[in-house]
């Protein structure tokens, strides 16, 4: 008996529709979030993440409505985020039906946001999203959708975020994102070793072997992917069967 490794599909949305892009750029439409959420819930996804990657203030009500409609489809946990700048933003997302809130750029600018959310909702509800990009011998924190360097060391930031009250790290390799050449196992293993909370690896997944590798070598607690699930390149059920056959504990739906 031990904790299963989680498989988490991610819906990147413009607030209303699921969109996809490579290395955070060149977006195109990839479907209806409610239909995808319902499919993943039935296929045995362990959680679902919904992000508003446009995160514009005037479209916020649309995104909150999307969260409500997605949450209504799920009997698994839901994480939502994108553009969370204040405690009030976090509250709105939780009230709309999210179990956890992810913070990214705004937390780098004002780390107290993490402790404010953590005090109100508990550490288990606060996911610190870190977009990391290799720079020489270390990894740098990137903000604003991976476009801008925050001039901070990713490992240090992960540690600080956890001590401020984040209960989980959603770690995206900006170098690998959209490339489909596999997760960054080295980055993930380093961060996983540095913090006491679970780490979700993201960026670069395509093949089932990539997932085996991130759990075995990357010490990830969960793995997240988007387009390979949306496009039907990889079914969640088949992926979990493959992981189980490779000795990785997963929750197989009945």
């Amino acid at each position: 008996m031990s904790l299963a490794h989680r498989i988490i599909p991610c819906l990147d949305t413009d607030g209303e529709r699921v969109v996809k892009g490579v290395n955070f750029a060149g977006l195109r439409d990839a479907g209806d979030p409610v239909a995808l959420a319902s499919r993943y819930n039935a296929e045995g996804a362990d959680e679902l993440v919904v992000l508003d990657i446009a995160a514009s203030r005037d479209r916020r009500p649309t995104f909150l409505e999307t969260i409500r409609r997605v949450a209504a489809e799920l009997s698994i946990p839901l994480t939502a985020g994108g553009g969370i700048r204040t405690l009030e933003d976090g509250r709105a997302v939780v009230r709309a039906g999210a179990d956890k809130v992810t913070v990214n750029t705004a937390a780098v600018q004002r780390p107290a946001l993490i402790s404010e959310l953590s005090r109100e909702f508990g550490a288990q509800a606060v996911v610190l999203a870190i977009d990391a990009k290799r720079n020489g011998s270390h990894w740098e924190v990137m903000v604003r959708g991976g476009r801008e360097s925050a001039s901070r060391d990713a490992i240090e930031w992960a540690r600080e975020g956890v001590s401020s009250g984040a209960g989980e790290i959603l770690l995206t390799s900006v170098d690998r994102d959209g490339t489909q050449i596999g997760f960054d196992t080295k980055l993930t293993a380093e961060i996983s070793k540095a913090v006491s909370v679970p780490v979700i690896a993201s960026g670069g997944a395509k093949l089932p072997e990539h997932f085996v590798e991130i759990f075995k070598k990357g010490a990830a607690d969960a793995a997240l992917a988007a387009s390979i699930f949306h496009d039907g390149v990889q079914s969640i059920r088949a992926l979990k069967d493959f992981l189980a056959a490779n000795g990785i504990e997963v929750r197989l739906p009945c």
Binding site: M1, S2, L3, A4, G167, S196, V197, A222
Partner: peptide, 9 residues
């Protein structure tokens, strides 16, 4: 790792 977060038997 804490929180104990995820699916367990």
């Amino acid at each position: 790792k804490l929180p104990h977060m995820g699916w367990n038997q």
